[in-house]
Design a protein around this nucleic acid. Structure first.
Lengths: 115, 115
DNA sequence: CTTTTATTTCGGATATTCCCGAAATATCGA
DNA sequence: TCGATATTTCGGGAATATCCGAAATAAAAG
C-alpha cells in the first residue's frame, strides 16, 4: 500500500468539506506564493476564526503549509501530500481496475501540457 | 468544474472512513462479480447492520451498486463514480499545478499495463 | 507604549456521525 | 407453512464535527 490506510483517511477527511476543499483549490491556484489567511477567509466567505480551524485541519493532514510574513500568515498548498493521496487512490484502484485510471493518464498528460 | 463541489464532497466523505475505504478497495479488487454483504462484513470486520449503513452511504454517493442474488445482496464498485472523483481532483489540481498530477500520467499508464 | 491589524485559541451550543442491539424484511429449503 | 439464513431498518446513546462570539497572541504603526 502506497499509504497507510489511516493516513489516506486523514487526507480524504481533510478535503471532505466544502469550505476546506474550496480553500485547497484556491491555494493550488495561488501557487507557491500562497495567500494570507485573511484573504482566504474573504474569498471563501467564512469568518477568520472558523477558517483558522479549517486551515489547522488541512495543515494537520499535511495538505497546506504556512509561513509568517509580517502580520499575515501565508498559506500554501503542499503538492506532495496531494500527490500522495492521488497516488494512493490511483494505485489502489488500478490494482484491480485499469478502467478507472487509464483515462487519467491522458488527463494528467494534458494537464502537463496545458498547465 | 468537472463536478459540482457538493458532489465532490459527497464522494470524498463517503471514502473518508476506514471501514468504508476498506470496503471500496475490496470491491474494486473483487471486480464486476462483486461480493455479498455478509462476506464484506466478515472481511472488513464489522457487524452486518453497521456494514449495511456504510454500504448505504457508499451507495448514496454512487460509489457502489447492488443486485440481489437469492438471499444475498451482491455489491460491486462503480468505476464511473471513482473515475469522476479522480477526474475532479486531477483536473482541479492540474489547472494550477502540473507538478501534482504529471507523475500520475506514468502511474496510470503503468496500471493499464500491469492490470 | 498604545493602538490597530491579522490571526489564533478558548468555551460552549448545535448538529452530525458512528456504532450497537433489537426488530423487521426477504428469500430459500424442509 | 415453519424455520433458517442474509440483510436492512429502527431507536438511542456516545463520540465527534462544526460554527460562533469573545478573548488572547503576534506584529506593525503612530
Amino acid at each position: 500500500m502506497t499509504l497507510p490506510l489511516p493516513r489516506a483517511v486523514d487526507l480524504l477527511s481533510a478535503l471532505a468539506h466544502g469550505h476546506r476543499l474550496a480553500v485547497f483549490r484556491l491555494l493550488v491556484k495561488a501557487g507557491p506564493e500562497g495567500l494570507p489567511a485573511g484573504k482566504i477567509a474573504h474569498e471563501v466567505g467564512v469568518l477568520p476564526n472558523t477558517l483558522s480551524t479549517h486551515l489547522a485541519i488541512l495543515g494537520h493532514a499535511g495538505l497546506v503549509q504556512s509561513r509568517r510574513d509580517g502580520r499575515s500568515v501565508i498559506y500554501t498548498a503542499n503538492y506532495a501530500a496531494m500527490r500522495a493521496m492521488l497516488g494512493f487512490l490511483v494505485e489502489d484502484c488500478c490494482g484491480g481496475a485499469p478502467e478507472i485510471c487509464a483515462p487519467l493518464a491522458g488527463l494528467a498528460l494534458a494537464c502537463g501540457d496545458a498547465g
